[in-house]
């Protein structure tokens, strides 16, 4: 009876089991590569249609002309009106979101008692959870009529209210990333400053803020990238006029609104106007990608390490 069958089994390799484990690991790896395939799909599909576009339209015209009328009978393909509109709305948004978000972050991280902080922080995050189409509605139906009382020349569609509302929308992005950066500043730095007689305000502005600069700058760049890629607010509230201007009171057309405008129309597959949305999309993709890369780079290269 003491043949030791269990011992035999214990030390023998269980091929079926090993095979199963390997299979599972393989399936999991395949799932993990879906993300890589998505990136590849984005790059290939954008590149393919964009190359076709540049077979027909000169890349020099695309990058230098300041007139964008691909849907008119006299077609011009200068991307600049779309870029200035995107820059304008994003700049307004960031000009709102950075002061509000940064001050909120300093307040939450350095001044607010833990109880207040644990209530206000999630409340701010709610702003990020509201769908963008709702902000678009708000900008067009509520904010623009309100602003028109003070700015008589403001048209129904304008980059000012789109930018303002987009700014409120990305406050949580700036505040939560900046707050993360500030809360990772070691407590010992604060204590040292207090020990030298600094007030809370001085600790916050002269010790914590400089030490967290890299994270804060990164959050601002990410906010800019987010605003540039934002679609529904500008498509609803900023207008559909590709004007080469930096006037915030007139209708403009951002890169994203152009893609929406063409998508809403009946554009035949493979036509030139179908290809334009990919050329515009590629431009947007490259711009936001660069901003994201720069933001990661800033974090990695300018981070103060105190350990």
């Amino acid at each position: 009876m003491q043949s030791g069958w269990s011992e035999h089994n214990l030390y023998r390799r269980n091929w079926a089991r090993d095979l199963r484990e390997r299979l599972i690991a393989g399936v999991l790896l395949i799932a993990a590569t879906v993300g890589v395939l998505t990136t590849l799909g984005i790059i290939l599909s954008l590149a393919n249609e964009t190359i076709q576009f540049f077979r027909i339209v000169s890349i020099v015209e695309f990058l230098t002309s300041t007139s964008w009328t691909p849907l008119f009978s006299v077609q011009t393909f200068g991307i600049w009106p779309l870029i200035t509109a995107t820059a304008l709305t994003s700049a307004i948004a960031v000009a709102i979101a950075v002061p509000l978000g940064l001050i909120s972050a300093v307040f939450l991280s350095e001044f607010a008692p833990p109880r207040v902080r644990s209530m206000l922080k999630p409340a701010l995050e709610v702003l990020a959870g509201v769908p963008t189409v709702v902000y678009g509605f708000f900008a067009l139906i509520v904010v623009t009529p309100f602003l028109q009382q003070f700015i008589p020349g403001l048209s129904t569609f304008n980059s000012l209210s789109a930018g303002l509302v987009m700014g409120i929308m990305i406050v949580p992005l700036v505040s939560s990333l900046s707050e993360d950066a500030m809360s990772s500043v070691p407590q010992s730095l604060r204590e040292a400053a207090y020990g030298l007689g600094s007030t809370r305000f001085e600790v916050a502005t002269r010790v914590v803020l400089p030490a967290a600069t890299s994270g804060i700058v990164a959050s601002i760049i990410l906010a800019l990238s987010r605003a540039a890629g934002e679609t529904m607010v500008v498509a609803i509230a900023a207008g559909q006029n590709p004007t080469f201007t930096l006037d915030p009171t007139v209708p403009v057309m951002t890169m994203t609104s152009y893609i929406v405008q063409v998508s809403l129309g009946d554009t035949p597959y493979g036509s030139l106007s179908y290809l334009t949305i990919f050329a515009v999309g590629s431009t947007l993709f490259v711009m936001t990608f660069l901003m994201n890369v720069i933001s990661h780079w800033v974090v990695r290269h300018f981070r103060e390490v105190y350990d």
Binding site: G35, T38, T39, G41, I42, S45, L46, L222, S225, R226, A228, G229, E230, T231, T256, I259, V260, S263, I277, F278, G281, L284, F285, T288, F289, N292
Partner: peptide, 12 residues
């Protein structure tokens, strides 16, 4: 990928 604008996913 988390930083790619959602409209780009639409083009994909």
């Amino acid at each position: 990928l988390a930083g790619v604008p959602s409209i780009i996913y639409g083009l994909l």
